[in-house]
Design a protein around this nucleic acid. Structure first.
Lengths: 211, 211
DNA sequence: ACGTGATTGGAATGTCAATTCCAACTTGGG
DNA sequence: CCCAAGTTGGAATTGACATTCCAATCACGT
């Protein structure tokens, strides 16, 4: 589920088992299409065809397109975090940080560097035009950044990382490197930029190691 | 045997003085709208109304919407680089790097952190869906990264930066930090993430200084 | 002044998307 | 078994958009 947010869902409707599955299928199909063509570039008919559902079903479960987009954001956030676990929960060593960043790089290579970050792409498209989407994206990035900061904080508590290091700022910098690196890699169709970007920040974190 | 219309050379047409101005006005208006609403979110009628031109004029000068988008990419690239000069041409000291990044941060604050990077936003939207747009974006980022690398190379040539420093990689990392930092700042509506991201990378570059 | 090509207005066309509607069908609990 | 609520299909509506067309001006070289 999503983070403890204040989602104002007035219509708490009961779902049949079949209904739940249909709903899931719509979200997953929409997420896939929107990852490649963007939210604006993905039409309801596109989703209908790809998921094998009728228009009524989409509007029944999500109200309107914006509702579906919000659901997709949450789904991608959950999926992204789930996929990165358990690595994400033990980012308390330089090697762990490198390994974690590396899996993302390999994943990027595997798909030929097409598409960037599932969340970052939606963020760039929706941050300015849809306030409720932006709110969820804030939450998404917070949930993503937290485990990084937490890992650094543990290193610091253990005395491995200088007590002067600003773990929150370093975590933000690393997340930014991931996002920016992904964008450059997507444009250049090469994961090199991504690897150089995250490597630089991790090197910098490394410079805060004690002794 | 249809000619693989890979690159239909934009037929060199003669422009009247008024025509040139109309063309410029369309590009600038479109760039402004697309910056806020994205390329896909900006319709030809939108541009018509904002620029005070008729549909014929847009199609006369750009062929179709994609042609206009390409022109907008080039325009934003030129505008971006021009705005950052002369700072961009003297990035050969840590202070210069910080000052350069700071102006972008202030600019971001000045607009309330709405909108990200003029080029980066278009990149995220178009990299996967429009190959000719992607090609221009590759060129845009290359033109942007070059002055950074060049400045670092000068520092290195002067013996200020370690000879082991990979100036190209560092330049890429800094550009990625700018992009990723802008994205996070746009979502969070605070330039803090941007400042932390670029600061981390510049600190890292600083660690390569020969003492 | 003339004529060719540049420029412009504005309506017309065809497509497609978002959303609504309603009727039919299913399911689960009492 | 029976009803209310959940679920689905598919047509209909409405509007916007990209693009085309044609006819009218306008600018400039000769």
């Amino acid at each position: 589920m999503s983070a403890p947010g204040k989602a104002e869902e007035p219509k708490e409707q009961r779902l049949t088992e079949g209904g739940r599955r249909t709903r899931e299928r719509i979200i997953e199909t929409a997420a896939e299409l929107m990852f490649h063509r963007g939210a604006g570039g993905t039409s309801i008919p596109d989703i209908q065809a790809a998921a094998g559902v009728s228009a009524s079903q989409i509007y029944h479960y999500f109200g309107d397109k914006q509702g579906l987009v919000l659901a997709v954001i949450d789904h991608q956030t959950d999926a992204q975090l789930a996929r990165q676990r358990p690595l994400l929960d033990s980012l308390d060593s330089i090697e762990a940080l490198r390994a974690w960043c590396d899996t993302a790089g390999s994943r990027q290579d595997a798909r030929g560097c097409e598409g960037g970050c599932e969340i970052g792409s939606l963020a760039g498209e929706l941050a300015d035009s849809d306030q409720s989407a932006r709110a969820r994206l804030v939450s998404a990035f917070d949930r993503w950044e937290e485990p990084i900061r937490s890992g650094l904080a543990r290193m610091q508590a253990r005395g491995e990382l200088s007590e002067h290091a600003d773990t929150a700022a370093l975590a933000t910098a690393l997340l930014a490197a991931v996002q920016g690196g992904m964008l450059l890699s997507q444009v250049r169709r090469s994961s090199t930029a991504y690897r150089q970007a995250v490597s630089a920040v991790i090197d910098h974190i490394e410079s805060h190691l004690v002794r």
